[in-house]
């Protein structure tokens, strides 16, 4: 199995959830370097792990030959994280509302909903080369 690759403020992982802790450690290290509060670090880490799981499963179809890349930056008072997969993309509008009573006991389907709740902005860009999701959070 290929290992994660780190270049500056980005990490690229093969499509396997076993690399989620690598992404989290890398992300939290950078956010602490920016001086971000722990509670906001947790919100960003929750959101990024949701997006990476989506990229691995729904984007790349868990194909270990395809990667998910996470790039982190700080612009003024905001942290921006871009999560990019190499898959055919998924349409978040097709996801059922997880807080509808009929969906409350479903084990999956809350990821994007949680990300939208925790982050200040979520932009989804579906391209022929994969899905790129950009999230931002005010941190100061």
């Amino acid at each position: 199995m290929r290992k994660p690759t780190i270049i500056n403020n980005s990490i690229r992982i093969p499509s396997s959830e076993e690399h989620l802790p690598d992404v989290d450690s890398f992300l939290e290290g950078i956010l602490r370097g920016y001086g971000v509060e722990e509670t906001i670090i947790a919100d960003i880490a929750i959101s990024v792990t949701e997006l990476v799981i989506n990229g691995i499963i729904h984007g790349n179809g868990s194909n270990p030959d395809k990667d998910v890349t996470v790039a982190i930056s700080k612009k003024d008072a905001n942290v921006e994280v871009v999560v990019q997969d190499q898959g055919d993309g998924f349409n978040p509008d097709e996801i059922e509302n997880p807080i509808d009573a009929k969906n409350l006991l479903k084990e999956v389907g809350r990821g994007i909903f949680i990300v939208k709740s925790l982050m200040d902005s979520v932009a989804i860009d579906r391209t022929t080369r994969g899905t790129r999701i950009t999230i931002t959070k005010k941190v100061s």
Partner: peptide, 17 residues
């Protein structure tokens, strides 16, 4: 537990149901 994401919530629901 420092935090959990929807995977953790899914595990709790699976156990509950």
């Amino acid at each position: 537990v420092e935090w959990m994401n929807s995977t953790g919530l899914g595990i709790l629901i699976s156990g509950l149901t």
